[in-house]
Design a protein around this nucleic acid. Structure first.
Length: 470
RNA sequence: GGUGGCAUAGCCAAGUGGUAAGGCAUGGGUCUGCAACACCCUGAUCGCCGGUUCGACUCCGGUUGCCACCUCCA
C-alpha cells in the first residue's frame, strides 16, 4: 500500500486517488525570469521521479505544471535585459525546457502559462466578490482570510501570531486598503504606463500571485485534485492562499495530498538567489559533468529531506552511478557470449525478491534511499551472475531489464556510454593489442598510460581489451 | 517569539523496542604478466542528561546544536 506524507495532516497517509487508476497532480512551476538553480531543479527532479514511479505502478498521471510568466520579477528582468515581459518569459521558459530536458524530466501533460488564463482569473475573482469572500478597494481586490475557516490548517501557523507578524510589515498602501493584515491580494491595480496590465472590472491590473494556480488547477484538473506538490517554502503563503481561494470558490476539498520537497543546502544554508550561494543548471551543464550524475544526485535522496550540495558530494554520487553503469555494461558484454537459454529459477527468484523490496521502499513515501540500496544489491547480483559460466542469456537479460527499469524510474535511462575513439586512440589500441599478443608488456603498459592521458581507461579481460571514458 | 524539521562510522545514509542495511572512501585478500574492473573480508553503540522497560538508536521528559517557514523563494 502506497503511503505518502501529507503536509496537511503531518502524517503518512494511505494513498488512494479519487478515480481508480488515475491521478491528477499539480506541481508549482517556476517564474520564468532567470535560469533555474540546483534547488529549483531538485523540486522538478523529485516530483518527476515520483511521477515515474506512479506511472510504473500503473497509474495514469495527469501532470500539470505551470510557468508564471508575469509579475514584478519578470518586469524587473525585462528592464535589466531590455526585453519585454513576454520576451523574458519566452527566453527563460526555453531555458527551463532545455535544462529539464538534460535532466531527463518528462514534459508535463500540460504546461500552462498564467497569461493564458486572464479571463478565467478575472471570473474567479468576480465570483469570490459575489460570495462576499473578497472586497475591492481602489482597484485592488483582497481576499478576507478571516472569512475562510481553518486558514492556517495547511501551514500549521497560529492565526494570532500570523496576524501580529503581518501587521508589523504592512506597507502604507496596504495599511489603508486591507481590512485585515493577513488578507492577501487577488488583483493588484497597475497604473504605471510602461508596464503590461490587463483590464478588469476593477480597472487595469495584474492577478495576485496565488490566483493562477487555483485557476489552472480548476481549468485543467478539476475542483479536487489528488496531489499538489512544490517546495516546502511554498506551504505558506502560496499554498495556504491557493487552498483558501479554491475551497472558498468551490466549497469542497481542493487537494487530497499535499507533498512538499526539502531544500538543497550549501554549507547548511538554503540555496537561494538572495544569498547568492546558488549554482544554475545552465552553468553546471556547461562543465564536463554527467547530467545523469546530477540527476541521480538529486533523485536518490528522499524528496522531503534536505540535500547538501557540494562538488565533492556530486563527485561521490557520480562514482556510485558509474558502478551501476559498469554492472549494466558488463551484462551486455556477457550476454554477447552467453549461451541462449531461459532465465534460471534462481535468478528469477532473487530478482523477484529484490523487486518486492524495491516496491516496499518506494511505497513508503518514496523512500528512495532504500530503493537505491536495492538497486545496488541488484548490481552486485548482476556482477556475480555475469561472471558465472552457467549464466544464460535469459539470466543476463532479466537482470539488465530490471536495472534499466529501476534506474529509469530515477530518470537514468542512458546506461551505456557511446565512446567515439579518435584515430590516434584507435591506432594506439591496435598497437597495444599487438604488443600484448607478442607479450611485450613493457610497450603495452606504456601505451595504456598514454591512453589514460587521452581520457581512456583500458582494461584487459580474457576476451581482450575493453575501454571506457575516464 | 510561533510553527515544522534535522542530529547514526571519514563522507552519504537505512533502521521507530530485542543486541546497528546499503553505497562511497580506507585497509587486506582473490583474480591479473602488472593494473583496472569484479568478487570476498574489514569500521560506529546511534548529539547530551534523565526516565519507562527484562531490554531503547527506536517510547517519555529535559537539554544542546543546526536548518526552514512566519516577506518573493523549489
Amino acid at each position: 500500500m502506497l503511503q505518502v506524507y501529507n503536509t496537511y495532516s503531518l502524517e503518512k497517509e494511505d494513498f488512494a486517488p479519487q478515480e481508480a487508476g488515475k491521478i491528477t497532480m499539480y506541481l508549482c512551476g517556476p517564474t520564468v525570469y532567470n535560469y533555474i538553480h540546483i534547488g529549483n531543479a531538485r523540486s522538478a527532479v523529485a516530483f518527476d521521479t515520483i511521477r515515474r514511479y506512479l506511472e510504473w505502478r500503473g497509474y495514469e498521471v495527469n501532470f500539470v505544471s505551470n510557468f508564471t510568466d508575469l509579475g514584478d520579477k519578470v518586469i524587473a528582468q525585462g528592464e535589466k535585459e531590455g526585453l519585454t515581459e513576454q520576451e523574458v518569459a519566452d527566453k527563460y521558459a526555453a531555458a527551463f525546457a532545455e535544462d529539464t530536458r538534460q535532466l531527463n524530466i518528462k514534459p508535463a501533460t500540460s504546461r500552462p502559462r498564467a497569461t493564458e488564463y486572464m479571463k478565467e482569473m478575472v471570473e474567479f475573482v468576480e465570483r469570490l466578490l459575489e460570495q462576499g469572500q473578497a472586497y475591492e478597494v481602489n482597484g485592488n481586490v483582497y481576499f478576507s482570510t478571516k472569512k475562510f475557516k481553518n486558514y492556517t490548517a495547511l501551514s500549521h501557523q497560529n492565526m494570532e501570531q500570523l496576524e501580529e507578524n503581518a501587521a508589523g510589515r504592512l506597507g502604507e498602501e496596504d495599511q489603508e486598503d486591507k481590512q485585515d493584515p493577513t488578507d492577501f491580494a487577488l488583483w493588484k491595480s497597475e497604473s504605471r504606463p510602461d508596464v503590461v496590465a490587463w483590464s478588469s472590472p476593477w480597472g487595469p491590473g495584474r492577478p495576485g500571485w496565488h490566483l493562477e494556480c487555483s485557476v489552472m488547477n480548476d481549468q485543467l484538473l478539476g475542483e479536487t485534485i489528488d496531489i499538489h506538490a512544490g517546495g516546502i517554502d511554498l506551504t505558506f503563503p502560496h499554498h495556504t492562499n491557493e487552498l483558501a481561494q479554491s475551497e472558498s470558490y468551490h466549497h469542497r476539498q481542493f487537494v487530497r495530498y499535499w507533498l512538499h520537497n526539502g531544500f538543497v543546502n550549501v554549507n547548511d544554508e538554503k540555496m537561494s538567489k538572495s544569498l547568492g550561494n546558488f549554482v544554475t543548471i545552465h552553468d553546471l551543464l556547461k562543465t564536463d559533468i554527467d547530467p545523469q550524475g546530477l540527476r541521480f544526485f538529486l533523485a536518490k535522496t528522499n524528496y522531503r529531506r534536505a540535500i547538501s550540495y557540494s562538488s565533492d558530494r556530486l563527485d561521490q554520487t557520480q562514482g556510485e552511478l558509474d558502478r551501476l553503469y559498469r554492472a549494466y555494461q558488463g551484462l551486455l558484454d556477457a550476454n554477447a557470449v552467453a549461451p541462449a537459454g531461459q532465465v534460471s529459477e534462481q535468478v528469477q527468484n532473487q530478482v523477484a525478491e529484490l523487486e518486492e523490496s524495491f516496491i516496499e521502499a518506494m511505497d513508503d513515501d518514496f523512500n528512495t534511499e532504500n530503493a537505491v540500496t536495492v538497486i545496488f544489491d541488484l548490481a552486485t547480483l548482476a556482477n556475480k551472475v555475469q561472471n558465472q559460466e552457467t549464466a544464460t542469456q535469459g539470466d543476463l537479460e532479466c537482470l539488465a531489464n530490471r536495472l534499466q527499469t529501476w534506474l529509469g524510474i530515477f530518470g537514468i535511462e542512458q546506461l551505456t556510454k557511446e565512446v567515439v575513439l579518435t584515430p590516434d586512440q584507435e591506432a594506439l589500441l591496435a598497437e597495444r593489442a599487438a604488443a600484448r599478443a607478442a607479450k611485450d608488456f613493457q610497450t603495452s603498459d606504456a601505451i595504456r598510460d598514454q591512453l589514460l592521458i587521452t581520457g581512456l581507461v583500458v582494461r584487459d579481460s580474457p576476451q581482450g581489451q575493453t575501454w571506457e571514458l575516464k
